[in-house]
Design a protein around this nucleic acid. Structure first.
Lengths: 225, 225
DNA sequence: TCAAAAGTGTTAAGTTTACACCCATGA
DNA sequence: TCATGGGTGTAAACTTAACACTTTTGA
């Protein structure tokens, strides 16, 4: 029984985070300009190693918290990357996770310490190792999941205008949406609630602020077969 | 730099295969009644350890081949499972893959050697460790992918009748499909070709045999945006 | 001759798309 | 007063869903 395991090799296991933010009508990723080896000076995802006694999902959360100070963040597994030479230093298998955060709420000093920057998703630099593949896959998985579940709210402040929500969907899907059709659809979603508050920052007239009601969303699921 | 890695722990890394087959109008999985520890006597997925110098995807293919004798099988990653105590013997992180095979074409002696059996997907026994979770996730991922790409042909013989194809889709989606609507849709897919052959086994009248044309499918993708 | 599976079109319902103007306000 | 973003409805096009009978043939 001991034999069963010990005849096999063991590997380092990393987690890497694709951290999405949204501002100015565009999606961005929080990337590190590495201050350390391997890959010093290159751009990479925030990553870390799974520790003894630590669940892999928890490792991903820890790594995200180390960079942003945030907890209770929406995170989903993207997939694992296990090419032999993906990390030229040692054999490391890595599992990628994507995270959706509100770009206005994170610990700026931690981010600065890590030498991390927000980079627009359509202007990404060359990334270390297979991190570009991870990003590509994360974008695909996120897009598919965003089409099936209301996860995009994690990228917005608690209160948001319909124009913000629309530009977010446009950024995720990479194509424009008709304003009237979009608002018609939103109106049918009982879990997107008008708050009565008005945003006066982005227009003279002021725009109604909405919020996502998680409880109502769960309720609405019951009626969808 | 050596320090960078060596301060971290290393773990065994396994791959587990959710092997789908289709016969008698039902999906089945190829499961092992384990002849060895850990979990001797229990039902489990076919698995194995990633080896030194072996890509993780290749490990999954190797493990599938060990059990079935098949190569060039359709396989996709399902996700990785990294709970600390998922394997009570040692810390093992495992990546699940699903495979779609033609249930009539595999090496029966290898399967017998491994003490593996086809089990209908709606009659699964209790599985070892977190293998049930892996199966649940694999079914979901497979269903989503089957709705987006024509992967289901991997579960059928080269030539198949439309009734077979329909019952397969019904098995994957878990709900009945209207025969005329189904055939109308198939007729629009230029990559599902009538072969001119007739199957006389399942009906007195005989049913036209069709086949999937991969090249035509690739061609058709170009015209979809 | 009849049981069993194969094959075949039309219509209604529902969904998606396209499209243009007025409103409120602060500068 | 006007520039800016907010807000609103309808009709056509398209897609999906519902539905029942005839054909072939081996036993």
């Amino acid at each position: 029984m001991q034999q069963y395991y010990s005849q096999h090799p063991r590997f380092y296991h990393a987690v890497d985070c694709i951290i999405f933010g949204f501002s100015g009508g565009e999606l961005s990723l929080l990337l590190l300009k590495r201050k350390f080896n391997p890959g010093k000076g290159e751009w990479s995802l925030m990553g870390g190693f799974v520790q003894e006694g630590e669940n892999m999902d928890d490792a991903a959360k820890r790594v995200l918290t180390e960079l942003t100070g945030l907890t209770n963040v929406f995170m989903e597994q993207v997939g694992s990357f296990g090419q032999v030479n993906r990390d030229p230093g040692e054999r490391v298998i890595s599992t990628a996770y994507y995270a959706l955060i509100n770009i206005n709420e994170y610990d700026r000093s931690l981010v600065e310490e890590h030498n991390a920057y927000w980079v627009k998703i359509n202007e990404l630099p060359t990334l270390l190792f297979d991190h570009q593949q991870m990003v590509d896959r994360a974008r695909l998985v996120m897009k598919v999941q965003a089409a099936m579940q209301p996860i995009s709210f994690n990228l917005l402040p608690e209160h948001f205008t319909l124009t913000q929500l629309q530009t977010l969907y446009e950024a995720i899907n990479g194509e424009p949406i008709d304003k009237r059709n979009f608002r018609k659809r939103v109106a049918e979603m009982s879990y997107i609630e008008k708050t009565g508050l008005i945003d006066k920052l982005t227009s003279r007239r002021g725009a109604a602020l909405y919020k996502f009601n998680e409880a109502k969303y769960q309720e609405s699921l019951k009626f969808r077969l």
